[in-house]
Design a binder for these strands. Structure first.
Lengths: 347, 347
DNA sequence: ACCAGACGGGTAAACGTTTACAACACGTTT
DNA sequence: AAACGTGTTGTAAACGTTTACCCGTCTGGT
């Protein structure tokens, strides 16, 4: 069931079989047909490892994510994986749980399998690990919040835009006391979101007192706990912005438990716009960060780096912008009168 | 950076390097140390494709699931993937969306990469496709609802147990008009759940009129639509059992939209017990089908089939039982008096 | 002292491809 | 008619391992 058998059957050399199978156009159509016929009569399927060994390309891309059970990521995996197979690649998936040990293991696996590139779509990757990949000249693409990383394709996420929109939306609904539930602050991404929140608040002259900044962990449980703490405050917030949707779902869930009506007594805004966000009750107003776009960016960058000489691909950068999507989890602050519309003045 | 370089550096043959790296115990510890030192001084990492080529084992298992964006599956992927790397394997993931084309492609990919086994944890796999794998003697494990498939490790899912518990739970809450939202009926698993429902109803003398059996599609949207239809009935159901949790979430979501209180005006029960089920409002009473147990079964079966001669592993079978977990989405049927407790009679 | 056997280590073949290069068959130019 | 391209096919080397087999050395028994 190898190429030699097909060659014998089609009465050509193995080189010709290889050429036909790889679509080299110069081969005589007559021979090509013989080869093709022989191949699928025998149900021949080329051996990828042999191919990879000689060509030096494994046709595999690594994808490392934080936690595949976090609903944010499956969409990324799906998109990336589909693009991969559509382009004749495979995907090597690693879920690190932001754990150093598992990250090391992930990198090791990628190197062992000789991936042709790695997309790091998690937010807490250790730089030291990347060094290992860089030394081996593995093309890399990663998300970045701080300064551009050299020698790597950077996907810069513009948290600012979406979060500013969210803050201004809440302000427009007359909210003044807006709390923010962060993610785990050792994650740069969580840090960046928090910073974007603070700046957006300051920008419109609103205060964000420290007791309104509570640390969560990007899980539903974290959201539950966060609301639990905020509710014990003497001066409660009237709106809560969350570092991700799972947190927001937790907040809403706990609000229900505490008989706080969302959105009438409390406005809640999420971040990520996972698919599920539309389906919680009430449907979640959230900042969209397109998972499929992110995955597509990453994949395309890897594909582009494929044959390009290393020096040509130093520090590409593209930007993924976030933006608010309005649903039903926010409302005018309780007791506020709607702003009279212009029409009301025309008598 | 290959084995020869290490051999030269350690002043031994490549065979010895190979032996050391594979932990063959007979080699002189002195040599072994030299090899090990040389290897990690040079940052040597073995080439998996070369290994696979000569050994005939790719140390890769295929995992095919229905749809990775369905929250049921990430947990499976996570568990399976972790077990894989813990045992020195890789996972080749395929998400088929129950689409024939994609299934074919998935099988093709598995064969190309020469996987050492495939776990089919989706429920609508075409038998014809399996034939292709079977011919190549790839160990297979799959879930099964009908008769045992020969030559394959079968994981039989006992839908009956959990669904019966759910029905009896609802009956105990005095529900008589219980509807069932199915999955896509071309899926055997969906069919099996529906059948289990009908039998459980009949068993306790309850009727399941055809208009109470509405077909969904295992998505939130499907659940929304299903409640939309049930609500137009002259005689509405007082409880709804759903073929999966996503459907149940859709039903709850639409109930909120229609101002129907869950659980007081409508009891809802799901199926699967995805992680999120605890966090919807109200927390979902659902039938648990352990995803991690399922994945573990599958992986262990593959691992066991690894070296075993083909005839030894014909038709193993294990059973995964389902069972009801009570949360807050069910209640006594509206207007029913609680059954007087024995204490009430003791005056 | 000799030899059998055990044991550790080296040599080289094999795994299934791709591809550089050689070989060959034509057609074209001088 | 010879020489030279041009274009297609074949030969064989390479990719990086594992492992069967062989060889040398040492141990212990006679």
């Amino acid at each position: 069931m190898d190429i030699r058998e097909i060659a014998k059957l089609a009465r050509v050399s193995t080189a010709t079989v290889s050429r036909v199978l790889n679509g080299v156009p110069t081969v005589n159509p007559k021979l090509a047909k013989r080869v093709l016929d022989a191949a699928d009569q025998r149900g021949y399927v080329p051996n990828t490892q042999a191919r990879a060994l000689v060509s030096g390309k494994s046709r595999t891309f690594g994808l490392v994510v934080s936690e595949i059970t976090n609903p944010f990521f499956p969409q990324i995996v799906e998109t990336f994986g589909n693009l991969a197979v559509a382009n004749g690649y495979e995907m090597l998936l690693a879920s690190t749980g932001n754990d150093l040990k598992r990250m090391e293991l992930a990198v090791r696996r990628m190197i062992e399998r000789r991936v042709d590139g790695v997309a790091i779509l998690t937010f807490g990757m250790e730089d030291s690990l990347l060094a290992d990949l860089r030394v081996r000249k593995v093309p890399l693409v990663g998300v970045v919040v701080g300064p551009t990383v050299p020698g790597v394709t950077n996907i810069r996420i513009d948290y600012r835009n979406g979060i500013r929109q969210a803050v201004q939306h809440l302000a427009a609904l007359r909210h003044q006391r807006i709390a923010f539930v962060t993610g785990p602050l050792r994650l740069m991404s969580a840090m960046a979101r928090k910073t974007a929140f603070e700046e957006s608040m300051r920008e419109i002259g609103l205060e964000a007192p420290p007791e309104f900044l509570v640390e969560g962990d990007h899980t539903v449980e974290g959201g539950v706990a966060a609301l639990g703490r905020l509710v014990r405050l003497a001066k409660r917030p009237t709106a809560i912005l969350c570092s991700n949707d799972m947190t927001a779902i937790g907040v809403i869930r706990e609000a229900y438990e505490l008989q706080i009506n969302v959105p009438n007594q409390l406005s809640v805004v999420g971040f990520d716009d996972i698919h599920l966000a539309q389906f919680v009750t009430p449907p979640l107003t959230t900042v969209q960060m397109s998972q499929s776009e992110l995955a597509t960016f990453a994949f395309q960058a890897l594909l582009a780096a494929r044959e390009r000489p290393a020096q040509a691909r130093q520090s590409n950068e593209c930007v993924l912008v976030t933006s608010l999507v309005l649903r039903k989890s926010t409302a005018l602050v309780l007791g506020a009168q709607p702003i009279p519309r212009p029409a009301d003045f025309i008598i």
